[in-house]
Simulated assay, not measured.
Amino acid sequence: MSTYRAVNVSAPARLAGPPDPRLAHLLRGLTLTGLVMVLLLPAAREHTQGLGWLPLWLVGMPLTAWWSLYRFRLPLGAGRQARSAAPPRRRRRGSQARRRKSSRSGLRTAA
């Protein structure tokens, strides 16, 4: 009989140290280079048959890799802080609402 243990996915992210600074520097450079290319070169904003939409590969993918290097941490914005300060909503206790019986009894018949 095999033993299955549930693993908390966020635990390794909290325990892991900071990412490799060389890789962070490389991804930051690729992202900024791609952004400059998309902004300054019209050819970098096109769609090609082989690669598809170039801004995705020049900006989007390096930016996603850079974000994942930091283990998908999201910046804590003002809206998120306001929600966390509010008390949690309470759920009503009791049974589920019931449907009302129709005032019309039976189906209408076509004359």
Rank of each mutant, 00 (worst) to 15 (best):
G34F: 01
E46T: 14
P62G: 06
A110V: 11
K101A: 13
W57C: 00
R89M: 04
A85K: 05
L30R: 08
P21A: 07
R14M: 08
R90E: 12
W57D: 02
Y4Q: 01
G94V: 00
P62H: 11
M1W: 15
P19I: 04
A11M: 06
A11L: 15
G50C: 06
L27I: 04
G106T: 07
G29L: 03
R108V: 08
A6T: 07
L35I: 00
R45S: 09
W66P: 00
P55V: 10
L26E: 05
D20Y: 03
G60I: 09
H25E: 11
R28K: 04
A78N: 02
A111R: 11
R93I: 00
A110H: 06
G106D: 07
W53E: 05
S95A: 12
V9G: 08
P18F: 14
T109D: 07
A43Q: 15
A85L: 10
L58D: 01
H25V: 01
A43F: 15
S103P: 00
V9W: 13
T33A: 12
P12Q: 03
T48Y: 15
R100C: 03
R45Q: 14
A111G: 11
A111V: 12
E46Y: 09
R5H: 15
R80V: 10
A11N: 02
A86H: 02
G94C: 01
L58T: 02
A24Q: 10
P55A: 12
L41M: 09
A44Y: 05
L107G: 03
A65N: 09
T33E: 02
R98Y: 01
R71L: 09
A43L: 15
H25N: 04
P21M: 07
G60S: 11
A43T: 14
L15H: 05
G79S: 11
